[in-house]
Simulated assay, not measured.
Amino acid sequence: MDDQPCWLCARPLGRRVEYHHPVPRSRGGRETRPVHPICHRALHAAFTNKELQAIGDDPATLRGKAAIGRFLAWVASKPPDFHAPTRRKRTG
Rank of each mutant, 00 (worst) to 15 (best):
33 R>H: 05
41 R>T: 04
11 R>W: 02
35 V>P: 01
34 P>C: 01
8 L>A: 05
40 H>K: 09
47 F>Y: 14
10 A>L: 12
32 T>Q: 14
45 A>I: 06
11 R>M: 15
23 V>Q: 14
46 A>Q: 06
47 F>V: 10
18 E>G: 15
33 R>V: 14
10 A>C: 11
11 R>E: 03
24 P>D: 12
12 P>F: 08
10 A>K: 13
15 R>E: 13
33 R>I: 03
44 H>P: 10
32 T>D: 06
22 P>F: 02
8 L>T: 01
25 R>H: 15
36 H>N: 10
1 M>R: 07
23 V>Y: 08
5 P>E: 02
7 W>G: 04
4 Q>T: 01
27 R>W: 08
33 R>N: 04
45 A>S: 15
12 P>N: 09
27 R>Q: 15
19 Y>E: 07
21 H>D: 01
11 R>D: 05
25 R>E: 14
33 R>F: 05
12 P>I: 06
24 P>E: 04
14 G>W: 10
10 A>D: 13
4 Q>K: 07
23 V>I: 14
9 C>L: 07
26 S>Q: 11
22 P>D: 01
4 Q>M: 05
27 R>L: 12
30 R>A: 14
36 H>T: 04
44 H>R: 14
40 H>Q: 08
4 Q>W: 01
47 F>R: 13
5 P>R: 03
39 C>W: 05
12 P>M: 11
9 C>R: 01
27 R>D: 11
36 H>F: 12
47 F>A: 15
23 V>W: 11
22 P>N: 01
41 R>L: 12
35 V>W: 01
8 L>Y: 06
42 A>N: 08
25 R>S: 13
45 A>Q: 11
21 H>I: 03
37 P>L: 04
16 R>P: 01
42 A>E: 03
7 W>F: 06
21 H>V: 02
17 V>F: 09
39 C>E: 06
20 H>T: 04
19 Y>A: 13
33 R>S: 09
2 D>E: 06
47 F>K: 13
35 V>K: 02
46 A>R: 07
30 R>S: 15
26 S>W: 03
32 T>V: 15
38 I>R: 15
27 R>E: 15
6 C>M: 07
23 V>A: 09
45 A>L: 09
8 L>K: 00
41 R>D: 14
3 D>P: 08
31 E>I: 09
47 F>H: 13
34 P>D: 04
37 P>K: 11
18 E>N: 10
12 P>T: 00
